[in-house]
């Protein structure tokens, strides 16, 4: 008898667990969901979210820091802006790079050609983000070291600062690693951020004797 009771208890327990799991499933599914670039899936989870979590309201946004070329002097400057939140890291990174391409709203200079497209972003478990850009990214004229450093690190720094999981970033062009954009900065491996490229006054007020 006791064994039968125990069995019954187990069954009840399992049914309960099943209920809990299936009720929370959409939430799990969203967390576990991975890239597979198909723009169509974006809308589906958004809909279920609205139904499941009424209080959360429609799509939320996050504030990101974008690195652009300072207008009046060499170096990078930070501009903050809100971008729609995505539960998928690769997609969120893609949106940040697209914001960079779209350019500054506060008069900072662009670092990427406006025609550049983000072909794909993928992130590895070890914190490397691969950003696959279209060829327009390398088409700017007159790329000197400074301009090239600024372009590369506007992307690298923007991702590393906004996503703690991203430790290094490698820019690919048209699906392939390229030695450099314009003959200087090594793009054959992932790069860690470099905050020394910030325009001087964003770090410290001028204090030269």
């Amino acid at each position: 008898m006791t064994s039968r009771q125990a069995n019954a208890l187990t069954v009840v327990g399992l049914v309960g667990l099943l209920a809990v799991t299936s009720l929370t499933a959409p939430r799990w599914a969203r967390l576990l969901q991975r890239p597979l670039p198909a723009p169509a899936d974006e809308s589906a989870p958004a809909d279920t979210r609205r139904r499941d979590e009424a209080p959360a309201g429609p799509r939320s946004s996050i504030n990101v820091k974008l690195f652009f070329q300072a207008a009046d002097r060499p170096g990078l400057m930070i501009e903050e802006r809100a971008v729609p939140q995505s539960n998928d890291l690769s997609r969120q990174i893609k949106s940040v790079v697209e914001e960079l391409i779209a350019g500054s709203k506060n008069g900072l200079a662009p670092t990427l050609a406006p025609a550049t497209r983000v072909l794909e972003v993928f992130v590895t478990a070890r914190g490397v983000a691969y950003v696959n850009l279209s060829k327009e990214a390398a088409e700017a004229a007159g790329g000197g070291s400074e301009a090239e450093l600024i372009t590369v690190y506007s992307v690298v720094n923007s991702l590393a600062v906004n996503f703690p999981a991203i430790k290094r970033v490698q820019i690919l062009l048209e699906d392939k690693p390229r030695p450099t954009l314009w003959g200087h900065v090594d793009l054959t491996r992932p790069l860690p951020p470099d905050m020394t490229l910030l325009a001087t006054s964003t770090l410290t007020p001028v204090a030269n004797p």
């Binding site: 002097r73 170096g75 790329g143 000197g144 070291s145 400074e146 992932p190």
Partner: peptide, 29 residues
């Protein structure tokens, strides 16, 4: 010879290679 999108940029610089903070780690990476 350097070039910047910022017209005010001037001066000379000498660079050496930045190696990623921990060589061993970056190499493993």
């Amino acid at each position: 010879a350097n070039a910047s999108r910022s017209h005010g940029a001037k001066g000379s610089e000498v660079y050496f290679l930045s190696y990623q903070s921990t060589d061993e780690e970056s190499r493993r990476l």
